[in-house]
Each structure stands twice: as structure tokens, then as C-alpha cells.
Design a protein around this nucleic acid. Structure first.
Lengths: 125, 125
DNA sequence: AAATATAATGCAACCAAGTTGCTTAATTAA
DNA sequence: TTAATTAAGCAACTTGGTTGCATTATATTT
């Protein structure tokens, strides 16, 4: 599970994630790479990169799926989940470094958290 | 803005929200009401009910849109936002009563929060 | 109560995100 | 270098959601 071959396409994707600080929506990736790469391929590589713990994914404010490079976030031990911030003006999404403790809820077993802050980023203020 | 006429369809929707405690996905609503009501109508009524502050909406773990009746939650003054819980076994989504203070983030102006807890509900444990 | 203005519904067509099955091509291991 | 196997490409499809426009229902006015 998650033994990713070093294909040209995988390298392209990895390169994007390594040079880009912010999160990227799959839709944007597909658009940006259209012509270079099939959209199915993009989806499948992202799946594999996530299994390998290279990237993590989450859902943006309008239901689109976003990916960002994992940097020190333990994606499996989901207990230092970080929030994400989405600017409603420019649409940029970034990982916030401030970690966040999972709230306890009586009667429920919580094992993942999706915390999305929506607002205006410093550039758009 | 938000002056909703009391049509048969609106009453049907309101009735569903008043008898259902949990949140409902739009997709489910459309399915449940197919034959009774056009899907466009469902989407539009939900929009209006939200403008009126009758229901609030949020995004589930797989990007689907969910709605739930507002009960005492001030949907416009987004500062007593409540979290939502989605059970990954049965799929049910419910509003948690525990309120939640919006975290401060330096440089950003945060005005909405989407906090989704994913796990296993008491029925599925 | 009837007429009018206006808001809401239905319909069909559309768009975009994401998925599936299958064939072909590219890695990696032998 | 060949063989085993993973990954890429393609096309077709599914699903959630939207749009424009014609028709119908609700409120309002007289």
C-alpha cells in the first residue's frame, strides 16, 4: 500500500507541492496540468501521495477537495490536526501552524477533525 | 431579501426540518422529494430558508452540502458557531450543542468557521 | 372578489467534480 | 533484457449543483 513509482507525472506533482506553500485544489491542479497529464492520473496520484503520507487533503468551503504537502503533520495519528484558512476574497487556502486539540464529545468517538476558518487574508485586507 | 412565500413546497420542506433532529444532505432531500418536487426547487427553497435564518448549511466530510434547522444559533453573528458531527459508519450528521469560540489568527480576519468532527456515533459504537 | 404584480415552480439543458473499466505504456525487479 | 506489475491515458459515465425561460401560484390592491 502506497509504494509510489517515480514516474514523470508523479515527479511533476511532487514538484508543484514542493514549490507551492499554499494548499491547492484538485480542480486547479487538473486545469493547470491539462495537456500535460490526464485528469484521472492526477486524481490517482493524489490518492497515492496521501497513502504515503506525503500530502494531506481536506474539503474547502464550497465542497472542493484541497491538498497540501505534509510538513511534520502526522496525518495518521490525527491528534495534532491543524486548521486551514480560506480567504473568501482571493480564494487562497493555507495550512495554519497553530495546532488544535480534538474536542471531546460525550457518546461519540471522534477520530478526525476538519477545521476550516473562512475570512480575509492579510493580502486582501 | 428572504421574504419567503408559504407555498406547498416550502411547507413540505419546513415540515421535514421540524420533525428531523439531524442535519440532512441536499442530495438526500432531493432524492426523498423526487416525484413531489423538482430538484431546482429544493435548492432554491433551501437558499431562501437560509437567508431567512431558518436553517443553516455546512459542508460534510465528502464535500456534500448539509442543512439543519437553526435552533437558537445566530447564523449571522457567526461567533457562537457550533460544530457538527458526522458518523463515518452510518453517515448521520448532527449539530453539536457545545459552542465554540472562533480562534484568533494573526494577520487574518476570520469571520466564519466550519468545524466538522468525524468519528463514530453512539449508535454505531 | 377579481384583477394585477410578482414571486416561486417545473423543465430541460447544462456544467464541473469526481469515478470506473479497460487498454496501452512505463517502471522496476529478475 | 525480459518479465511482472504498476501506472497512465482515454472515453464514457455518475452525481451534485446551476441557469434560462415559460408557466403557475401566492399576495396585494382596488
Amino acid at each position: 500500500m502506497g509504494v509510489t513509482r517515480q514516474t514523470k507525472q508523479v515527479k511533476t506533482l511532487l514538484d508543484i507541492f514542493n514549490t507551492e506553500n499554499n494548499a491547492i485544489s484538485v480542480a486547479d491542479l487538473v486545469k493547470k496540468l491539462s495537456g500535460q497529464m490526464n485528469k484521472t492520473t492526477v486524481y490517482r496520484i493524489l490518492d497515492r501521495l496521501m497513502e504515503d503520507g506525503i500530502v494531506h487533503s481536506f474539503v474547502g468551503k464550497n465542497g472542493l477537495k484541497w491538498y497540501a504537502k505534509c510538513q511534520g503533520c502526522s496525518c495518521d495519528a490525527h491528534f495534532d490536526v491543524h486548521p486551514h484558512f480560506q480567504c473568501k476574497v482571493c480564494g487562497e487556502v493555507s495550512c495554519l501552524t497553530s495546532s488544535f486539540k480534538i474536542p471531546e464529545v460525550k457518546g461519540y468517538k471522534v477520530d478526525a477533525v476538519n477545521l476550516l476558518l473562512v475570512g480575509t487574508c492579510s493580502d486582501c485586507l
